[in-house]
Design a protein around this nucleic acid. Structure first.
Length: 548
RNA sequence: GCGCCCAUAGUUCAGUUGGAUAGAACGUCAGGUUGCGGACCUGAAGGUCGUCAGUUCGAAUCUGACUGGGCGUGCCA
C-alpha cells in the first residue's frame, strides 16, 4: 500500500516535470519502485529519471533533481529524498507512514492484503485433472498446491475464481481400466498395459454383487469404475490436502446430445469447419493447427470414427470460453508442453483470443529421503502416492515444500527434511514463529495485561521493529506480484524472511516488559505480525497452529 | 533432427521483468540462555551468475552461438 501511495506521488511529479519541459504528447514510460539493496539505506528507490531520460532527451541526473525538487515538499510522507549518481532517486519514508500501516493491518485483520485488482473478472483455474485410473502421484500434488494457492491469491485480489477439475471419463484408458477391473474380478491377468493396482482388488471386493450383475454392460461398468476411483482417491485425498474444487467437469458431458441431435463436441467442430480449419485426409478428420504455429496438423476424428483426446479438448476449451471466463488458466505437468500450440491454435480457430488462455507448466517432482532418490516405479503400483506423502509428512509441510520453488524448475522434495522439527525445516521455522507469538499473548493474559488497539505506535523505535513493519507493509505488493507472475512461491520466501526478522527481534527485545506503554505498543506489533503470517499461510493453504 | 524448460556459494534455491557492493537456507567453523517457547539467535568463511561474443550509461536478467542436463516430439490420454 505504501508503495502504491509512493507511486502516485511520483506519477504526479513526473507529469509536472514533463510539462515543465514543454514536450507534448509524451507518455511516461514504465518505471520501477523498489526496495533498494541494504547498503543504500533508503526505504524505496525509483529508476524513473533514468527511463525518462531518453524520452525527454535530458540527462537522467537533471531529471532526478527535478523530480526530487517536486516531491520533497511533502514532509508528511518523506523524511528525506535524495538523488544519486546515475540517476536513482532514494526515498526515506516518514516513520508515521509506517505506523499508519500497522494501524491499518490491525484494523483490516484477515482482510489485510485484499485489493481490487480483478474487478470481479471471471477466471477459471483448471488443475490436477488427473485421469481417474489410479491414485494421485506426487506430481499431481504440485499442481494441486499451485492451483489452489493461485486461486486463493486471485480471490484476495477480487477475481471471481472458479476452480475446476476436468474428469477424463472416456477413451482408451478408461476402457482399459474397465477391462482391467473385470479381469481382476475374474482373477485373470489384466490385459497388456492394463492396471493392476491393489485399488482394483479393493473395489472388486467391496462391490462383488454389483459387478456380477452388470458386467456385461460396458457403459455401466465404465461409469462405475470412474466414480469409484474419484470417490476413493480424488475426493478423499484432495479433502485431506485441504483442496475443494468448485466444479467437476466430465469429458462425457461434451457428448450429451441436445434436442437437435447435436452435442457440444459437434458444435465446436462445426465451428472449426465453418472457419475452414479442418479437412479430411486418409479417412480421418484433421485440425489444421499448422495455421497456428503448430509444427504438424492433428487428427481429431480417427478413420475408425472415434475421437482423439484433442477433439474433447477443443470442445472443452470452447465450452470454457462460452461460459464467459475472461482468463482461463490451465496448470499442466511440463510433459504436456507439446500440447500448448494445438490447444491455443484451436482456441484461435474457434474465434477466441488465445492470449486469454494462460498455461502454467510445472516441472517434475523428485522425492528424496535424506538426499537419496526414492525409486518410483509406476507399473508395479508401489510408487509413492500423494496420499502416502500426506500421511507421512502432513498436508502443511507438503504444501509448503511444493510451493518453495518456482514451478518451472524441477523440485527435490525431501521427505525426511519435511518431517524434521527443527530449523532446517522451513515449515516449522515459520509455524514456530506463529506459535511463539500466540504464546506471548497467552503469557500477557496470564500477567493480566489487556490487549488494546489504543497503544502508541510511535514508541516502536528499535531498528528491528521498523524492519518488521516495513516487511509487513510489503505484503499487499507481494500478492500483486504473485498474481501478475502466476508464481505463488514468492510467498514462501517472504514468510521465511518475515519470520526471520521476528525471531531476531524476539531474541533481542522483550515484548512484555516493565514499561506498560511500550508493552502495549509491542503487543500491537506482535498482533500485526500474527495477522500477516496467518494471512500469508492461508494463501498457501497452510494451517496456523497456536501451539506446537 | 526439431521444440519447450533449466544451468547462480560445498548443497538446495531466491533474485519484483535491464539498476547501485548478486541474497537466503542448509552444511562447515566460532559464539550466545537465570527472563515472553533454545523447535531460537549472533558472527565468519564460501561466487569468473555454464562458456564465448553482442546490444547500452548499466546485463545473472535481453540477443546469437556453443557446452551440459530434464522433458516432449502418436490416428495414446
Amino acid at each position: 500500500m505504501i508503495k502504491k501511495e509512493l507511486s502516485l506521488i511520483i506519477d504526479e511529479a513526473i507529469k509536472k516535470v514533463i510539462r515543465n519541459c514543454g514536450v507534448k504528447d509524451i507518455k511516461a514510460p514504465q518505471y520501477n519502485v523498489e526496495v533498494p539493496p541494504g547498503n543504500i539505506g533508503a526505504d524505496y528507490a525509483t529508476n524513473a529519471a533514468m527511463v525518462l531520460a531518453p524520452v525527454l532527451k535530458k540527462s537522467p541526473f537533471l531529471i532526478a533533481e527535478e523530480i526530487t525538487a517536486e516531491v520533497s515538499g511533502n514532509k508528511e510522507f518523506f523524511k528525506a529524498v535524495e538523488f544519486v549518481k546515475p540517476g536513482f532517486i532514494n526515498f526515506h519514508i516518514n516513520e508515521n507512514v509506517f505506523y499508519n500501516e500497522v494501524a491499518r493491518i490491525l484494523k483490516e485483520g484477515e482482510d489485510y492484503g485484499r485489493q481490487d485488482m480483478g474487478k470481479k473478472k471471471k477466471v477459471m483455474i483448471e488443475f490436477v485433472s488427473a485421469n481417474p485410473t489410479g491414485p494421485f502421484h506426487v506430481g499431481h500434488g504440485r499442481g494441486a498446491a499451485l492451483g489452489d494457492s493461485l486461486a486463493n491469491i486471485m480471490k484476495a485480489l477480487n477475481y471471481n475464481v472458479v476452480k475446476e477439475y476436468y474428469v477424463n471419463d472416456m477413451g482408451n484408458q478408461i476402457d482399459l481400466l474397465a477391462d482391467s477391473l473385470l479381469c481382476v474380478y475374474d482373477n485373470k491377468d489384466v490385459p497388456p498395459g492394463g492396471y493392476e493396482g491393489n485399488y482394483l482388488k479393493e473395489i472388486c471386493k467391496n462391490n462383488k454383487d454389483f459387478i456380477r450383475d452388470n458386467r456385461s454392460n460396458r457403459e455401466v461398468i465404465r461409469k462405475f469404475v470412474v466414480d469409484e476411483m474419484l470417490e476413493r482417491y480424488a475426493t478423499k485425498d484432495l479433502v485431506d490436502f485441504g483442496l475443494f474444487f468448485d466444479n467437476w467437469f466430465y469429458e462425457s458431458s461434451l457428448y450429451k446430445e441436445n434436442k437437435a441431435g447435436k452435442n457440444e463436441a459437434d458444435v465446436a467442430l462445426d465451428k472449426l469447419r465453418a472457419n475452414k480449419h479442418v479437412y479430411e485426409m486418409d479417412g480421418a478428420l484433421w485440425f489444421r493447427s499448422t495455421g497456428f504455429a503448430d509444427d504438424k496438423d492433428r487428427v481429431v476424428i480417427r478413420k475408425d470414427g472415434t475421437r482423439t483426446y484433442l477433439a474433447s479438448d477443443i470442445a472443452y476449451h470452447h465450452n470454457k470460453f462460452e461460459r464467459g471466463f475472461e482468463t482461463v488458466i490451465n496448470i499442466w505437468g511440463a510433459d504436456h508442453h507439446g500440447y500448448i500450440d494445438r490447444v491455443k491454435g484451436a482456441i484461435s480457430g474457434l474465434g477466441y483470443d488465445s492470449e486469454k488462455l494462460k498455461i502454467l507448466l510445472y516441472q517434475l517432482v523428485n522425492l528424496t529421503r535424506e538426499g537419496k532418490p526414492v525409486v518410483m516405479s509406476k507399473r508395479k503400483a508401489d510408487y509413492v502416492t500423494l496420499r502416502q506423502v500426506i500421511d507421512e509428512v502432513g498436508s502443511d509441510a507438503c504444501r509448503f515444500f511444493y510451493l518453495m520453488r518456482n514451478a518451472n524448475t524441477p523440485l527435490d522434495f525431501d521427505l525426511e527434511l519435511a518431517k524434521k522439527q527443527s530449523q532446517e525445516n522451513p515449515v516449522y521455522y515459520v509455524q514456530y514463529a506463529y506459535a511463539r507469538i500466540c504464546s506471548i499473548f497467552r503469557e500477557a493474559k496470564k500477567m493480566g495485561i489487556k490487549f488494546t488497539l489504543k497503544g502508541n505506535l510511535n514508541l516502536l523505535k528499535e531498528p528491528e521493529e521498523l524492519t518488521i513493519i516495513k516487511k509487513l507493509s510489503s505484503y499487499p505488493d507481494l500478492l500483486l506480484y504473485c498474481c501478475k507472475t502466476l508464481e505463488p512461491h514468492h510467498l514462501t520466501g517472504y514468510m521465511q524472511d518475515l519470520v526471520g526478522v521476528f525471531h531476531s527481534y524476539y531474541m533481542k527485545h522483550r515484548v512484555l516488559g516493565d514499561d506498560r506503554e511500550l508493552t502495549e505498543s509491542r503487543l500491537m506489533l506482535a498482533s500485526a505480525l500474527q495477522t500477516v503470517v496467518r494471512n500469508s499461510l492461508k494463501m498457501l493453504g497452510i494451517s496456523t497452529p497456536e501451539e506446537m
